[in-house]
Design a binder for these strands. Structure first.
Length: 251
DNA sequence: AACCAGTTCAACCGCTGGTCG
DNA sequence: CCGACCAGCGGTTGAACTGGT
């Protein structure tokens, strides 16, 4: 996913870094530090410009740098800081140890920006919900629903569980779930599309906790308890859908 | 299987501000 | 004060990857 290596007219190498180059740069900086980025490549035996070396070190080779697997807490913090500072990525990165400004910038544009642009759809559900069901013969039916437990969170892009999908009346489509207290309907689009695509999603989604990542990064119990209930975990959300289905007409 | 469009992210580029002679 | 040099920052690019048809 990177540019192919090539040499520019000055004989400087550009594009993707090789393992050998990484090793040279890492070894040099760890041993001597980056006293002068411009001069560093010459001393480190690299055919790169200092700028490129600096970027590679800061974004990739630094010992404490983390990649991917952003936690919910980090996402929320980035969103909050972006509201506060705008596109000041280095300022935002300063609040997230181990994250480079470039990484945060990419993460913002590929994940978080869309999330915030979807409106404040992460706002909590109130106590009453409304949904529309289109039956096989095309009839539209509007129903209300009051969950046993108030304020369940639903995350964006949460595919519905197999249990929920299968418990729908054959041929019927759940179109909208709206918050009748605030007149906002906010599950609509994502949930609808999720209905159609659920079969294609991996079963891992339902068995893997949201906080789990490849590094086995799981929040310890005390920290989990501090997380806002409105940014809860998928397994919590499933309960709401189970309950929704229990209370749908015909069940 | 092949193609296409959308997504992701490492790396590049140009600009800005700080420092020094 | 001014110009040169440098590090750092943020926007953009482009190739690999992914998912849909």
């Amino acid at each position: 996913m990177v540019r192919a290596p090539y040499f520019d007219k000055n004989g400087l190498k550009k594009g993707a870094w090789s393992q050998e180059e990484d090793d040279k740069l890492r070894a040099y900086v760890l041993r001597y530090g980056h006293w002068n980025w411009r001069a560093l490549p010459t001393f480190a035996g690299l055919a790169r410009c200092g700028k490129s070396c600096r970027l590679r070190w800061l974004n990739y080779l630094r010992p404490d740098v983390k990649h991917g697997n952003y936690t919910k807490k980090e996402d929320d913090l980035i969103i909050k800081l972006h509201k506060q500072f705008g596109n000041k990525w280095s300022r935002i990165a300063a609040e997230l140890p181990g994250r480079s400004d470039n990484d945060i910038k990419n993460h913002w544009h590929t994940h978080l920006k869309k999330r915030t642009e979807k409106g404040q759809s992460s706002s909590r559900l109130k106590e009453t919900f409304q949904y529309e069901v289109i039956s096989e013969n095309g009839d539209l039916k509007v129903e209300s629903f009051v969950p046993n437990t108030s304020s369940y969170p639903i995350l964006e892009n949460s595919p519905l569980s197999p249990e929920l999908s299968s418990s729908l009346t054959s041929g019927s489509i759940l179109v909208i779930v709206s918050n009748t207290s605030t007149s906002s309907n906010w599950i609509a689009e994502d949930s609808l599309s999720s209905f159609g695509t659920f079969e294609n999603t991996s079963g891992d989604f339902w068995t893997q906790p949201f906080v789990a990542d490849q590094d086995g990064c799981k929040l310890p119990t005390p920290e989990r308890e501090l997380v806002s209930p409105y940014f809860s975990y998928y397994d919590d959300n499933i309960d709401l859908f189970y309950q929704l289905m229990q209370e749908l007409p015909g069940n």
